[in-house]
Simulated assay, not measured.
Amino acid sequence: MAIVPVFPFICYLVNEDIDVTVAEIQIILNLVTLRATSSMENNYGIAAALKMSENLSVALSHMLLAGTGIYCLIQIKDDSVFLPHATFGIITVHNIIAVWRWGSDQGLRVNDIYNFTSYTQLLFALPCITTTLWLANGYQREISWAWAIVPMIPFVCYLINDFDMTLIEIMVLLNSAAVGAVSFKAGNNFGIAAAVAYAISHFCINRFVVYNCGLCFFAYFSLRALGYGG
């Protein structure tokens, strides 16, 4: 675009008449170029602002879930069974890391840790509640503990870079059904609500903010299903 004015300039030097249309075209081209550049800069600025706003929303949702996890840990601090502590502890630790991941300009530095704790939460948060409820309702210990032990298989697979999401989907489905079934049989409405909240969050929601809010309900309903927080 900077070369275009050379033509009328040469004409001027050799005392040739310049068609005014050439100058007008040059002005129009410059205006169009300036407008296009300005538009691109504005679009980039808008996109950056939207991205920042989205990241902030995700960070706030993780903060809410971390706070819920801390609240649940405080409520069960005297419980002799450690599995609920594992559930709420994993939720708390992961979401504290997630606040840094999404709320800081340096968040990508903890991305590997964030992915690891996210996977750990996915594998163990629900199964630990499943085992706790089955034990509390008098089911055979071996079967009850299997719910919390089986997730070690995909966890080991993850450590050796053999990720299998299909297996995890099946585990989540079975654990949700197990929590719902034992809670229904025992008349534990909070247990049913916890199973439904987790299943909906996992299978029906693909936005971080809503997913985290769903897990807040899961954590609270799980706490109430265990007889705390009332």
Score class of each variant (00 low, 15 high):
Val58Trp: 07
Tyr71Phe: 10
Gly187Met: 08
Val150His: 00
Ala148Thr: 14
Val110Ala: 11
Asp164Met: 11
Ser61Phe: 02
Trp100Ala: 10
Thr87Leu: 00
Asp105His: 02
Ile143Ala: 09
Ser118Pro: 02
Thr92Met: 10
Asp78Ala: 11
Ile168Cys: 07
Asn175Ile: 06
Cys128Phe: 15
Asn95Ser: 12
Gln75His: 09
Ala148Asn: 04
Gly103Tyr: 01
Trp147Glu: 00
Ala86Ile: 15
Thr117Pro: 07
Phe163Lys: 13
Asp112Arg: 12
Ile90Ser: 07
Ala195Met: 10
Glu142Pro: 04
Tyr119Pro: 00
Ala177Ser: 07
Gln121Glu: 14
Leu133Cys: 08
Leu108Asp: 15
Ser61Gly: 03
Thr117Gln: 01
Asn137His: 13
Leu56Cys: 11
Arg101Ala: 04
Ser80Gln: 15
Ile96Thr: 12
Pro151Ala: 11
Ile192Leu: 13
His94Ser: 13
Gly180Ser: 06
Leu126Tyr: 11
Tyr158Leu: 06
Ala66Arg: 06
Phe184Asn: 09
Ala146Pro: 01
Gly107Ser: 04
Asn115Ile: 03
Gly138Phe: 03
Met152Cys: 14
Gln75Tyr: 01
Phe163Thr: 07
Thr120Gly: 05
Ala59Val: 01
Gly180Glu: 01
Ala197Ile: 06
Asn189Cys: 01
Phe155Asn: 03
Met171Pro: 00
Cys128Ser: 15
Leu122Ala: 07
Phe155Leu: 08
Glu142Asn: 11
Met171Gly: 15
Ile170Ala: 03
Trp145Glu: 03
Thr131Val: 10
Trp134Val: 02
Ala136Thr: 09
Thr120Arg: 02
Leu65Val: 01
Lys185Ser: 03
Pro127Thr: 07
Ser118Asp: 14
Val58Asp: 13
Ile76Trp: 08
Val99Lys: 03
Tyr114Val: 02
Ser144Asn: 07
Asp162Arg: 15
Asp112Val: 05
Met63Thr: 14
Phe116Trp: 09
Asp105Ser: 10
Phe116Pro: 02
Val156Ser: 03
Phe184Thr: 12
Gln140Ser: 07
Phe155Pro: 04
Thr87His: 03
Ser183His: 05
Ile192Gln: 07
Ala98Ile: 02
Ala178Cys: 05
Ser61Cys: 03
Gly103Met: 07
Leu174Gly: 00
Asp105Ile: 02
Ala194Asp: 10
